[in-house]
Design a protein around this nucleic acid. Structure first.
Ligand SMILES: [Mn+2]
Ligand SMILES: [Mn+2]
Ligand SMILES: [Zn+2]
Ligand SMILES: [Zn+2]
Lengths: 143, 143
DNA sequence: CATCTAATTGAAACGGGTTATCAATTTCAA
DNA sequence: TTGAAATTGATAACCCGTTTCAATTAGATG
C-alpha cells in the first residue's frame, strides 16, 4: 500500500464530484507536495523538473489551486512569497517565520483566538477568517 | 498656521537628513494623505488628479514610499490591496477589515501581544514584526 | 477493445500592481 | 544667478501568477 492513501482518496473524491480527471501530472505533483509541510510553486517545479522535464509551471499552479479546492492545501502569503501548506492532516494554525533562514514553525493558541473573538465582538464584527504571522529570528539565527 | 504642522516637520527633518528636496508634489500629496487614516495609491491618485492633472502615478508611489521611510506612513497589505496607513499620530495597532464594505477598524490588545511573545519564546524565536488581521463582516454588513 | 467527448496539458501571451529608466525640469546651496 | 544634484512624468519593465489555445489524454460508453 502506498503512503498518502488518505490524501489520494480525498483528491479522487473531489475529482469525482466535479467531473475532473486523475492524470499522471496530478499524481506526480500530489506525491511531491505531500512530502513537505510548506512549499512554493517554484520550488515544487524545480523538484519535479528532474523527474519530468516537460511538466509546465502553469500545471503546477493549476494543480496547487485544485488541491486548495479539494481541501488538501492552503495558500499562505508570507512576506513576498506564497507557500502552499499541506493541511490535510492538520487543524487550524498560525505561523512563526524566521526572516533569516526561512524556517516556519506552526502553532495553535486558543487564548489568542478567544481574544480575537472578543475584540471583534466589541467592535460589532463577525470574524470569517484571520491572519496571524510572527516574523523574527529563530534560535539558530540569533547569533 | 496650517494643520499637519507636526507631520510636515517630521518630513522636512527626514528630507534634510538625506539631501532630499521639498517639492510642490510632495506638499500636495502630504496634504491629501494626512486627511485620511488609510488610503490606496490609486485612490490618492484619483483624488489628486482633479487638483493637478499632470501628477504621475509613479510620483504617488515614490512619495508614499518616502513617507514610509520618514515614519509618516506604513504599507499594509489587506487581502489583495495595499493600504497606506497614516501612522504619525498612532502607536502600534492591528486591524479588523470588513470584506463586504471595506470598513477598517483599528485596535490594540496587549493581551494578544503578550501571548504572541509567549508563543515565540516557547519556540526560541525573537519577534521583529507581526501581522494580525481579522477579516469578517461589520455590524452594518451582517444583514 | 474502439470510439468519442470533455478535461487537461504545455507554451506562450496576458494581467494587475509596483518599480526602474531616462530626458527634461526643478530645487536650493553657494 | 548659477550649477550640481534631486525630482518629475511618461513609459517600459518587472514579478507572479492566470488565461488562452491547439494538441493530447482520460475514461465513459457501446
Ligand atoms: Mn502551516
Ligand atoms: Mn491602521
Ligand atoms: Zn532562522
Ligand atoms: Zn461592512
Amino acid at each position: 500500500m502506498s503512503k498518502h492513501q488518505k490524501e489520494m482518496a480525498l483528491l479522487k473524491e473531489h475529482l469525482g464530484k466535479h467531473q475532473l480527471k486523475y492524470t499522471r501530472q496530478r499524481e506526480l505533483i500530489l506525491d511531491a507536495f505531500l512530502k513537505q509541510e510548506h512549499i512554493t510553486a517554484e520550488e515544487l517545479y524545480h523538484q519535479l523538473s528532474r523527474k519530468d522535464p516537460h511538466l509546465g509551471l502553469a500545471t503546477i499552479y493549476r494543480t496547487l489551486n485544485l488541491f486548495c479546492e479539494a481541501g488538501l492545501a492552503q495558500a499562505r502569503h508570507f512576506g513576498t512569497q506564497t507557500q502552499y501548506d499541506n493541511v490535510s492532516h492538520k487543524g487550524h494554525h498560525d505561523h512563526l517565520i524566521c526572516t533569516e533562514c526561512g524556517k516556519i514553525v506552526e502553532f495553535e493558541n486558543c487564548d489568542i483566538e478567544r481574544l480575537q473573538e472578543e475584540v471583534a465582538a466589541r467592535n460589532g464584527f463577525i470574524i470569517k477568517t484571520h491572519r496571524l504571522e510572527l516574523y523574527g529570528l529563530c534560535s539558530r539565527c540569533q547569533h
